[in-house]
Design a protein around this nucleic acid. Sequence first.
DNA 1: CTGAAAGCGCTTACAG
DNA 2: CTGAAAGCGCTTACAG
Lengths: 341, 341
Amino acid sequence: MAPKSSTLQDVARVAGVSTATVSRTLSNPNVVSESTRTRVSEAVKTTGYRINRAARNLRTQRAHSVLVLLPDLANPFFSEILEGISRELSHRGYSMLIASTKQVHDSGERLLDYLDDARADGMIILDGGLDPDVVSMLENARQTKRILFACEWVEGADFPTVRCENRQGAREAVNHLYSLGHRKIAHVTGPEGNVLMHTRKDAFVAQISELGLELKPEWIIAGDFSISAGCAAAQAWIAMEDRSTAVFCASDQLAMAFIAELSRHGFRVPEDVSVMGFDDIDFAEQFIPALTSIRQDRLLIGETAANMLMGRIESPNTGGDEPIAIIPVSLVVRESTAAPG
Amino acid sequence: MAPKSSTLQDVARVAGVSTATVSRTLSNPNVVSESTRTRVSEAVKTTGYRINRAARNLRTQRAHSVLVLLPDLANPFFSEILEGISRELSHRGYSMLIASTKQVHDSGERLLDYLDDARADGMIILDGGLDPDVVSMLENARQTKRILFACEWVEGADFPTVRCENRQGAREAVNHLYSLGHRKIAHVTGPEGNVLMHTRKDAFVAQISELGLELKPEWIIAGDFSISAGCAAAQAWIAMEDRSTAVFCASDQLAMAFIAELSRHGFRVPEDVSVMGFDDIDFAEQFIPALTSIRQDRLLIGETAANMLMGRIESPNTGGDEPIAIIPVSLVVRESTAAPG
DNA sequence: CTGAAAGCGCTTACAG
DNA sequence: CTGAAAGCGCTTACAG
């Protein structure tokens, strides 16, 4: 059997001090004398000591880790947000635990158990579509301060939230198309019930009316996150009595599926119709035609969320009620939009 | 302050038994009498008891969690693998910790600390491009049995590995193009030094020669994972003295960038040239033209890796030396390949 | 500046 | 089948 790794005891023995002193040297060096400090440091080196986090966690009543809850692990949309969260957490010596809503549910676990069983100090939820029962459990929990939503949120529940400027993004989309000369602009919405999609749709409608543009009912096409929804939307567009000259899709995914289906039917983008998306996922740039989109800084969303959560965890009483952070979006113009033909 | 959550002690008090009995009831129910069992269960319910994992972990010397190391968190290629790993882990009551190679490095942590400081019981490494120093640290660690590579691996180091049939995939790619009638087939390689890419390239060359096809030097185009590499490869193809009629790209990403650049120069796929990729990422289907590819079952890779690692962690002595699992691949024919024009 | 001692909340031989 | 007790490896008032 390999040698057991060494403990504080071992270091203390080698350095000729108490475990208390070793512990202090490690966590609060300037409270011990310099000579002690060097002696301990050497002992740490010779023993190859690594702190046992399970022990520290038990003693300090902190897990030093945060759970990130995704709606779906297989969805690549979240990868950059994770990168942002992880950066911020690792700066602060925290680990990142990941789970998906579906899996937590399927495995019969309760989401709150992560907090209750000392696995995580807090959680960042990237899923606004949580079951209402789950949401109310979260609201009634002892641990409300340790929960934060990012990207999506739950209408009515007031957890701190980090999100992008969805309204502003939708407005900029409309303005971009308008400035190209489009006057007949359609919108493919996201899934019914998704906060993001509602917000974007409402802002779309508002901006259209602000510009004094006509909005025929058939120009609002109901979609969802699926590829087939994008295809169906394309068929709906093709079948319109009065086709719009531009289409703003609630997500890039939707826009790409929309364009793909259109191209199968012999329509060209942007020659026959301008199409744009929302999110600016990695792939938008590689798509043919390269997709005009509204960029969300997903890295920044992640960092901000982690930062905010850490603040609340580490000083829960500091009144700091900045329960919402809004991350700006920006228009990225590429090849899928042009002046109407 | 919210009430502290209850402990084993509380449950024991309420049930009128010792903490030992409560513990047994929870972890090994059939060793206690039925009446005790019901009493304890009720006490658990009334107290709302949740086990404290930090305490359990300290006592059992298990973290009940596994670290998954990605080369890059922002790369969506891995999401489905994570889903597979996470499924298997949560079945077994383990949590999934995530970190990226770059971040571990930047934060000055050592990879082995995750094992040494009791944060994780094992790790699944999805990065074959680890620094050789790091690899040799891993090899010399006490914890070799707790480390496993998936998807990628390190040539020369013999850690257990889960990978897909890269050779077979490349051969099927060649055969597919051959059977369509192509006799002049080029290959865009991945980054120099990546095991996956080498394996695929070698198999490509082998199969070409097995079929007795000519292979001009200019038909091997050096690429990497970047989008710009795909574009450069397209320019190389355009500039060829004797253009191949088909191109097998070492990844889907590469294939899409290749096609995108080609289309900017007025070439059409598959009319002017057939192009296929490798991986079958989610996006392959939505791309225009929908991409012919070699499908890796990333879910299965993830599940298999987790499964194998759990086996090694939970019974380290059971000789079980199946240090390598190969996951089959399959050809997915879509629109980007056709008979030569 | 340092040490002795208690204790975080579990699990598990050991004894009965 | 059950309990008393030790102990996992830390941290932190408390006292000096």
